[in-house]
């Protein structure tokens, strides 16, 4: 009998806490510990989280395969499934299948500069890429991490990212549209204003990865194109509500492509041809 790829694996929630209001960090591990190290994935891939009795939905992986054993997600409470997910406590069991999607073309990015540009919740999938690059620091040239949120209390992984500022082998630039705390020590302004800190970048030897709210893309892409980074080296990850994750159910189709198997990571060049994108 053939394997049933729709069958999820039971996983235990080992840690969870609120990243910001309505966005929660979930760290999970297969119940069978022997399986923990067999889950291979790439930054940029996603998994289907399944709650029997509620349903399944796709979520970006936020952890890095360079730190195996635990899977991490940053999940916003926005629908029926996430409402239920937020009710679960540590040590409770959820079910997960995957990983799915193409992920970032990591091997092609070796030897290149990286500009990672995140807005709001876009930090969730990009954190996977960032951690991967930091754990394999020698494989990349300069690394820039540009992250913008509306307000300080809407910035995900804030402490983690502030600690990165102490490292000298990357440029971590954080900005908020508005500081309503009075104690924000980082930049103020939209994320595109951080581009002025990017210096002496050879665009041909640079990959950019962008994820954020739809409104952010156009402005960030403009900046990257102005830097003369080739269109096929500008990467972005798209979101759709997949039901299967395996190129069958049709829900994530955009024109001729399936977001789940052809994406969710696309180059700007790919995206230029897509219809009904946003």
């Amino acid at each position: 009998m053939s394997e049933n790829l729709y069958e999820p694996i039971p996983m235990r929630i080992v840690r969870r806490y609120d990243l910001v209001e309505n966005v929660r960090f979930f760290q999970v591990r297969p119940v069978e510990i022997e399986r923990a190290l067999t889950i291979n994935y790439k930054p940029g891939q996603f998994m289907m989280i399944s709650l029997f009795g509620v349903g399944e939905a796709p979520f970006s992986i936020s952890s890095s395969p360079s730190r195996p054993g635990l899977l991490e997600f940053g999940i916003r409470k926005i629908g029926v499934l996430t409402e239920e997910l937020f009710k679960l406590k540590e040590n409770e069991i959820i079910h997960i299948r995957g990983p799915y999607g193409n992920g970032f073309p990591i091997e092609k990015m070796y030897g290149y500069n990286l500009i990672i540009v995140a807005g709001g919740l876009g930090a969730v999938p990009l954190r996977s890429l960032l951690l991967y690059a930091l754990d394999n620091r020698d494989l990349f040239k300069k690394i820039y991490f540009l992250y913008g949120a509306r307000r300080p209390n809407e910035m995900l992984f804030l402490r983690e990212f502030l600690e990165l500022k102490e490292r000298e082998d990357l440029e971590c630039l954080l900005t908020v549209d508005k500081d309503d705390t009075g104690s924000w020590t980082e930049k103020i302004g939209v994320v595109t204003e951080l581009f002025k800190y990017l210096k002496d970048i050879d665009p041909q030897k640079t990959y950019a990865a962008v994820c954020g709210p739809p409104v952010m893309y156009r402005f960030v892409i403009d900046k990257l194109v102005n830097l003369q980074i080739p269109k096929h080296q500008i990467l972005m990850t798209l979101e759709r509500r997949m039901r299967c994750g395996m190129g069958k159910c049709g829900h994530c189709v955009i024109g001729s492509i399936y977001t789940c198997v052809d994406g969710p990571v696309f180059t700007y060049w790919d995206v230029l041809h897509m219809k009904d994108l946003i």
Binding site: G79, G250, H251, I254
Partner: peptide, 18 residues
């Protein structure tokens, strides 16, 4: 299901791509 039905491309949060 059918991609002709209105809610086919609806995602969490209420955005409908088609």
């Amino acid at each position: 299901d059918s991609c002709m039905l209105k809610i086919f491309a609806l995602v969490a949060g209420g955005h409908n791509f088609r």
